[in-house]
């Protein structure tokens, strides 16, 4: 993905198979959405999940020899933030790609820190 600093919110794709991928992000003190209390603001979690899906899409495009897509969030639905992660937390996110119509992809994302559920959401991303 052509996502560059300052808001890179995915460190790596841990694995990807079929329509499911796992991604990782370590929260550092340079995180764009870090608040004064040392925790990440909720929109950062949304961006992390969106970029996870975009990275996964980009990964698929690379494997297929296609150009890297640009992704936008079209809709966030049923987002729930259970806890705001803190500096040093290692987040693992499961993204599942669903139905796709005319460039709009439905996806679900679930972010955990260890066993603790941090956030989950449905999202629609535009890819062009």
């Amino acid at each position: 993905m052509p996502q560059r600093n300052p808001i890179v919110m995915v460190d790596k794709i841990l694995d990807a198979e079929g329509d499911v991928a796992h991604t990782g992000l370590t929260v550092t003190d340079r995180n764009y959405f870090l608040e004064e209390d040392g925790r990440m603001a909720e929109p950062g979690l949304i961006e992390h999940i969106a970029q996870s899906a975009s990275a996964f899409k980009g990964h698929k495009a690379l494997l297929a020899g296609e150009p890297l897509p640009i992704g936008y969030i079209g809709e966030v639905k049923k987002f729930h933030c259970y806890v705001r992660p803190a500096v040093g937390d290692e987040l693992t996110t499961t993204v599942t790609l669903g139905a796709e119509v005319n460039g709009v992809t439905l996806m679900t994302g679930e972010t955990r820190c260890g066993e603790v559920l941090v956030a989950d959401t449905q999202m629609k991303i535009f890819v062009e």
Partner: peptide, 14 residues
């Protein structure tokens, strides 16, 4: 305030 839930948020235009 902390965002607890977003029932729906649509980006209707760029």
């Amino acid at each position: 305030l902390q965002i607890d839930t977003i029932k729906q948020c649509r980006m209707t235009a760029v």
